[in-house]
Write a protein that binds this DNA or RNA. Sequence first.
DNA 1: GTGAAAGCGCTAACAC
DNA 2: GTGTTAGCGCTTTCAC
Lengths: 349, 349
Amino acid sequence: MTETAPRPTLEAVAARAGVSRATVSRVVNGAHGVRDALAERVRRAVEELGYVPNQAARSLVTRRHDAVAVVAAEPETRVFTDPYFAQQLRGISKELTAHDSQLVLLLTEGREDHARVGRYLAGGHVDGALVFSLHLDDPLPGLVRRAGVPTVFGGRPGWDDGRDDVVYVDSDNRGGAREAVRHLAGLGRTRIAHITGPLDQTSAVDRLAGFRDVRADAGPELIAHGDFTPGGGERAMRELLDRCPDLDAVFAANDLTAAGALRVLRERGRRVPDDVAVVGFDDMPPVAEQTDPPLTTVRQDVEGMGRLMARLLLRGLDRGTAPGDFRTTTTDPPAGVVLPTTLVHRATA
Amino acid sequence: MTETAPRPTLEAVAARAGVSRATVSRVVNGAHGVRDALAERVRRAVEELGYVPNQAARSLVTRRHDAVAVVAAEPETRVFTDPYFAQQLRGISKELTAHDSQLVLLLTEGREDHARVGRYLAGGHVDGALVFSLHLDDPLPGLVRRAGVPTVFGGRPGWDDGRDDVVYVDSDNRGGAREAVRHLAGLGRTRIAHITGPLDQTSAVDRLAGFRDVRADAGPELIAHGDFTPGGGERAMRELLDRCPDLDAVFAANDLTAAGALRVLRERGRRVPDDVAVVGFDDMPPVAEQTDPPLTTVRQDVEGMGRLMARLLLRGLDRGTAPGDFRTTTTDPPAGVVLPTTLVHRATA
DNA sequence: GTGAAAGCGCTAACAC
DNA sequence: GTGTTAGCGCTTTCAC
């Protein structure tokens, strides 16, 4: 893997093809207005020399990089075990590929990583950034703003920064939650409980809000806090059953939580959905379809969210205007795009 | 996220601080030999202007990028669901961070991605690459070689390319397998079977070789092919039991395979380890500890492998010599580094 | 249509 | 110690 051999430059190709650097540049960049014969000669020289443009030199003058950073906090390798993230990334990847842009994944594990990522972004390696602002107090949003890189967020960011020109893509967490709870109510359930997600994430906050929209009168005994994990779901479900043995429905903040809740319900001898109906959120295939019984849940199009994030970013870049400037354009797309959710009926409600 | 404001340049900082560009450069790069007073003035100017060095310009002259690419084939989002990969990545990440180098994860989903990744690597964005050569026929190794970037491989690459200066880090798959099988033999087992991994990966090939080293006389009826998944393990185990109902031990090519095998053994009424002893490979905590009974398995230090890969690459870069050149140096570290494995005794053997 | 020349922002000799 | 200067490899006016 040695090959410290000096790469050929534009100059070398020009010499070999017997043309000027300008002409080679035109051919390499697919510009028009170069006579076919010449273009062919240039292409052959490129081929023979194995010429590859030096991106640093190119970026220095064009200020474009054809690369987009995806910044993800990676606490405890979670990013890699979370199918949610993988799906979103796949959507992003597809869109960027179509645009011939390179995806650069930047992981942050700790505070010291933040500085490095900040430098990387500000240093002009990428045209823009896609950021998952996982928590309300996440330093990432501030960091990318300071880096001055066009950015689109995945999930509504907390109001940590005062600006309202933040571009983000989110699911209709609140609306989806409402639909779930209404469905439960429509089934005739009257004592509907909610197991929340970690309330330092807007998605969890919004789902709780949706629950409250429909059950404004729900007492605190019907709400238990989870953390988006099965373990959290189990704990919360036990709490709920202890406080409220006669509950007849549960809206869990996500599928994993619901899976944990189902386990506890079975363990306590409650039949699902006869005694207690359950609805989840996410519709992660490996989870929702595998629960026993299969989970009724709110589906969000995670891959679509990823794709849309990338599209918004690229669109902004193409216009030569940062995404944040959308609102000032005539078409005026909203700064935040919220994707609809759909209720998927399976066996638990 | 607007901020199309032009970034300040070295020039601007120099002007503000009333010094030359060279001096600013020295201060910014932490060089010695700048009088404190001046350095302080420069630092203030940097601060006030919010100056961040333009990496493209810097790389253009230094030919360094302080970034390393990790190239991973991502078939079916597998990379993200595989704890093995996550662990390795964590090791890499730690080492790079310590060296103040940025990790850039390049995912490839299809053939068209390969060309883009090739361009990215050859385009001079990174100082080196860490590549997981998953399969024997993987195009990635050839691709990075053509890109001419110093590279270290994770796992022994197949002999697809004729060069022997390939640097790689691997576990002692063969030795570990031998130890596993010897342990089984030491238990007095005489009909020891093996469930292989996918034989287009060298790790699977090597583990099979280790098995054969100890049981050269094992007939083909004692070997079944798996694919490193629980499902494959189940299928292979059924085959083995059908062909060879009296087998008394199984060496599975990895933990997931072993987990599948255990399920089938239970289903068929075989007691583990009394009737059939089982040993796995990997010691992935979430898998090996959770099987019923807990799995005896061969542990490999995956995070350590990742760390070592990064270290080898960085060491080569620091010397100004590509890793492949190690063999020509006096210290002469081997091109391939093989990490030892250890047998972890739990309940299945 | 093609070439010449002027930089993009930075570092590294080399003078002073 | 500090400044001056010459590029790194490329794109892009602007002449021809």
